[in-house]
Design a protein around this nucleic acid. Sequence first.
DNA 1: GCCTAGAGATTGTTCAACAATCCTGCAAGA
DNA 2: TCTTGCAGGATTGTTGAACAATCTCTAGGC
Lengths: 240, 240
Amino acid sequence: MSTGGAETERQAWLRTVAADVARLDRSSSAERAADILRRSITEGALPPGAQLSEIELTEVLEVSRNTLREAFRLLTHEGLLVYKLHRGVFVPELDERDVIDLYRLRRVLEVDVVRGLADRDPELPASRLEPLLDDVEAAEAAARADRWPVVGTANMRFHEHLIGLADSSRMDAMTGRLLAELRLLFHVIATPRELHEPYIERNRRLFELLEARKYDEAAADLHEYLLHSERAILAAFRSR
Amino acid sequence: MSTGGAETERQAWLRTVAADVARLDRSSSAERAADILRRSITEGALPPGAQLSEIELTEVLEVSRNTLREAFRLLTHEGLLVYKLHRGVFVPELDERDVIDLYRLRRVLEVDVVRGLADRDPELPASRLEPLLDDVEAAEAAARADRWPVVGTANMRFHEHLIGLADSSRMDAMTGRLLAELRLLFHVIATPRELHEPYIERNRRLFELLEARKYDEAAADLHEYLLHSERAILAAFRSR
DNA sequence: GCCTAGAGATTGTTCAACAATCCTGCAAGA
DNA sequence: TCTTGCAGGATTGTTGAACAATCTCTAGGC
């Protein structure tokens, strides 16, 4: 054996390898099929209300019905599909109450994460904020290229990475679900630019507040941010 | 057609019927199998670390392997089972970090629900609190009968009903998951009495604060309550 | 005692078939 | 005209069997 310091380093390496293996392992046919369907749904190719035929998709995705149904189950639990017994799976149609419900949870979780960062500030290396900056810059670049759906994706990732700072696997899972459902809502709104543009700047400001370790200020800003976003979506929703 | 008022009444009735239909519909073989397994796990018949053999359970539950695997998927997404690729499904073994993670989320969600009740106090009929009182009394009765696992169940339902006051389907789903995982933790603790007894009284006090509409006070009480519970479980966990 | 090879067992995936249920269209009746 | 009842076809729910991929365990060699 070696010293404690070397041992820790070795353990850290073992952990990264284990994570890589786990990432490779999770490539069952069902999850690959689910990946394709997830993209089709979140990118709008399968609009809310659409039914997914089993036999049709088995041919397109080249998997068996059982495997496809397992993929359906995966997406069902992410909120991207709903099962109707003996009738099939459908892309859910969310309404205003869902918007309110989703945003209520987003506010609770995200604001709490930011506020909670104050307690563990010392142990949080600055490098943890790098993914957030990457997302902001990706959004800015996409905006310059006039690619607003890409801006939306980058903004979403910003919030995913924000939640990730809490190091809570369960919060990550919940947020993933919430944001996936949110994407369903975006597709009923015709003007992606108005929907995403204001938040590029707000995300950058949020990032800078975090970088400056002004966590309470960041939490207050985020709270108001999410209220603003909710109002915008509700307004766009009502004018359909 | 009739007046607007009658129309609203009719719509309300239609909603209740639709809810009943949805409840009846959700009875597929896979979900029935999942129900049985869920009870076995939460009641401790299947302890953490146990492996669930496919061929064995197909015989016991009298379903096919495919249907059983669909039930496994359902429970996996509730956190009650974990898949290890090519090795099978197991009842997860939670550790101290899971305790901390679970309680962090419980505090965030439950305290927010209670605090949020203040905003919608007028529209909240007093009858909505009845299930909470039922749970408190059920726990008290079970305690007198010295049936501590039943006390634990009643206490859990109290918190489920508490979250239910928010009328948020997504929060209900999240809480259901969190509490199910919590039950997994309870089974590694040998003394159910110490684990559940203190919270009978605390639940009653919480109920009385809600009944008196002292929501902020109730929220503060609940916050401290959950910290206390977390410490108790962590202590029991460390002394195994 | 440790390592390796291979047999046996278990899981991952597919396929085909049948049962149960839903949707569609049409005809009969009020 | 509107509702009701009834085939017929289409789709989903479930099963069983089969094969491939992987893991576990044991036996044997060093």
